[in-house]
Write a protein that binds this DNA or RNA. Structure first.
Lengths: 284, 284
DNA sequence: CAAAGCTGTATTATCGATCATACAGGTTCC
DNA sequence: GGAACCTGTATGATCGATAATACAGCTTTG
């Protein structure tokens, strides 16, 4: 299998430029540095820069004008979904966007040690492992791997997992969930997540690891979520707390404010604002 | 300038394996899949897998035993620093670790449009831009770019910025800061952050963008922070809120608990990804 | 108009990552 | 002991991304 050697320097430049565009660092409509300048900046040949720009153009992020320059295309194509800290997407649903879940894998396995430890399992105990992909408007944006102790996983079926939020199933079994800890980090896309999220291997991803505990402190769910950063990000409002000598911030609680939800998806179908429709809150 | 073509497939596999090890997916002390298996899994030749393992071994993350296998080195290598939501590092300092700040760049410039907008600046207004790197125990872990309206930036000197927290300087000028919004995301390291954080270009990074407002809602600081995910991550405790039909989480307030702070970075692992000089050959 | 800068296009050459293959020598386990 | 793993090592060939260079045609600017 000879397979292809991918254009990696070029792709990297593509990704970097793409990031800057999405981040708004390069103003929409503005001109980016000339090809020779970019070549020098990244210490590559102009040919390579050219290939990166080809990709950007093919994705519609950029428009080239011969003799003039290369410009950031106005229609800001990609704006991330906004989620608050608790990872709630309900306001998305309120806005009439459809989310969907695909179950990629389901089964009972021996857990990796780190997961066994975080769930407080005894050696030898097995877990239910599931991998799901969440879509919004048909596009995948998150890749969820969950591990649940076997005794708990057996209280629901594969079909139920595909259809209903895991947390709901857990509670249905009588387990109370009141506390959780989570960590947010970044990583690179491996082969499976890349395929599921429609990304290149090596693309950056946001990660969220959450461990849910029942009132006794026992771990009942281990969630590992990977998010496409161009389609998802965490937002939060902060307020100052502590005495004025102390420079501390604290998350502002309460429902997402109007200004937050307003940021969602600017140009995509300016639907009616906040229809109090029924909620199919899907979440994990 | 021919310069080198980097071993990119190999490096990618290296990064992916490294991630899995750090994440604890591959249990410390455990054996990883054989070289032929890894080669098949990533659809590359064994030689390439080998190169990835060479890097892991050189960093001490892995130990190879001829005839037996390749094992995850026990000394739990790199534990990220834990920060709570408000991005407070004070507990680190409490623990006797030394943090340091290096000022890389300081000046007054015309802001990118996105920043001007977020700070609510009038067209033509200039901003003070600074780039700083934060170190812990001598190792860089975050790359901070701040933009402050010119009128505010002029109230302190470059030397003061290098020595004192920006927020303190802002308050000293009489501006009150009570609210902020922030977003967390992921991206890839560009040339400058990569150099400053001692990373390869294309490494994954955690990003934090925070905009601080004064009581009138005027933006007074735009902070863009990049974090090395192997040295820094966000942690938080969550509690359930809402009526029981509602599956919502809310961050638990209060100071970081002991169990959190205990997780901080155990032993420092070494060696930057060596990879020769190449690259940053600025030829402006 | 003319200079300067830009993108489009073409050609040639190089170099190194990667592949495919083979064999040596150690370990594990039955 | 011996089969079946594993890592270590060596080899030659390939192939494609990248570099270097040159020139065309267009646009902008003074």
């Amino acid at each position: 299998m000879k397979s292809s050697v991918e254009p990696l320097k070029a792709r990297r430049i593509y990704l970097l430029l793409r990031d800057r565009i999405i981040a708004g660092d390069l103003p929409p409509g503005g001109r980016l540095p000339g090809e020779p300048a970019l070549a020098a900046e990244h210490a590559v040949s102009r040919v390579t820069v050219r290939r990166a720009l080809d990709l950007l153009e093919k994705e519609g992020l950029v428009q080239r004008k011969p003799g003039s320059g290369t410009f950031v295309h106005d229609s800001r194509a990609v704006r991330p979904i906004v989620a608050d800290l608790s990872n709630v997407l309900s306001h998305l649903i309120d806005m009439g966007r459809s989310t969907d879940v695909k179950l990629l894998s389901f089964g009972y396995v021996a857990p990796p040690e780190a997961i066994a430890e975080s769930l407080g399992l005894k050696p030898g105990e097995r877990v239910q492992r599931s991998v799901r992909v969440r879509l919004i408007d048909g596009e995948p944006f998150s890749y969820l791997t969950t591990h649940v102790p076997e005794w708990l996983g057996l209280t629901y079926s594969e079909a139920e997992l595909a259809a209903r939020p895991l947390l709901e199933l857990i509670e249905r079994s009588g387990v109370k969930t009141e506390r959780a800890t989570q960590a947010i980090n970044a990583t690179l896309a491996g082969p499976e997540p890349a395929a599921a999220l429609d990304l290149e291997i090596g693309s950056p991803l946001l990660t969220l690891t959450r461990i849910v505990h029942d009132p006794s402190g026992r771990g009942v769910e281990h969630l590992h979520a990977l998010y496409r950063p161009d389609r998802y990000s965490f937002h939060m409002d902060l307020v100052r707390i502590g005495d004025d000598g102390e420079r501390r911030w604290s998350p502002a609680l309460g429902r997402p404010r109007a200004s937050d939800t307003a940021k969602i998806d600017k140009n995509k179908a300016g639907e009616k604002p906040t229809r109090g429709s029924r909620a199919i809150k899907q979440r994990s």
